[in-house]
Amino acid sequence: MSPLIQVKNVTKKYGGLTANNDISFDVAENEILSVIGPNGAGKSTLFKMISSFVPTTSGEVLYRGERISNLKPHIVARKGVVRTFQETTIFKSMTVRESVVVAQHLRAKASLAGYFWGSKAAKEDVDAFGKYADELLEFLGMSPISNEQASNLPQGSLRALGIAIGLATDPKVLLLDEPFAGMNHDETMQMVDLVRSVRDERGVTVMLVEHDMPAVMNISDRIVVLNFGEKIAEGTPSEIQNNEKVIEAYLGSVDDEIGM
């Protein structure tokens, strides 16, 4: 079976700084693939290129054989490749449910004008969005906070909301940038289960960037390791744990350690 996502010789330069250098790897359908590496290794940059938030300097990213790099983010999202953000990025003055409803707009059958005039299709959409929002929030265990204003939520719930917004778009591939950041051990383990069930029950292929090594080792089918913009390793969690280069990269950096 051909891979779902192909990262082909992708390079990103910011002036003199090479954030990603000639990175290549594949992601299979229904896989959970993690990208790890010390701070500044170029993980977020890679995700931003896959979702077309920044253009590549050279190389390309293919989704089902079709180029998705160097387009516009909304076009890539429409194809089904959706990212979440490392920083807390939410619709502050919307409630959880409103955010999840608005994120479903790609599924709309009625036109914008149809909504303006209140066409039948638009009414059906509105009902369907509301229903699906409730379902999704139930699935994510967020029903109790569905009417909370996003700006009032604690950090852990904000992460979950970011994922809920991403999921509401009905993606085929979800790119999660540090989804467990700021969560304690229990919350992280809950989230790990959740991400896994997103894959198992919704057939979403997941790519994630994470610093929490136990969580990464637990959740990933495969791992890609970046260091100073270079891909230094790729393999299953056990292969990565025993990889010399990886151990060196992590021991060499001050603020990170590979917790295995």
């Binding site: 979702s51 938030f53 516009k72 983010p73 909304h74 999202a77 429409r78 959706v82 990212r83 979440t84 953000f85 990025t89 939410i90 619709f91 502050k92 003055s93 919307m94 409103e98 409803v101 608005v102 994120a103 707009h105 790609l106 709309a108 009625a110 914008l112 909504y115 303006f116 209140g118 638009a122 959409d125 917004i165 991403g166 509401a168 778009t169």
Partner: peptide, 23 residues
């Protein structure tokens, strides 16, 4: 209507709005 909701999403966060496919 939906256009208004999309506007609101843009007003609050353009990056997030484009990540959910808003042109």
């Amino acid at each position: 209507s939906r256009l208004g909701h999309l506007c609101r999403s843009m007003q609050q966060n353009e990056e997030l709005a484009s990540s959910i496919g808003v042109n």
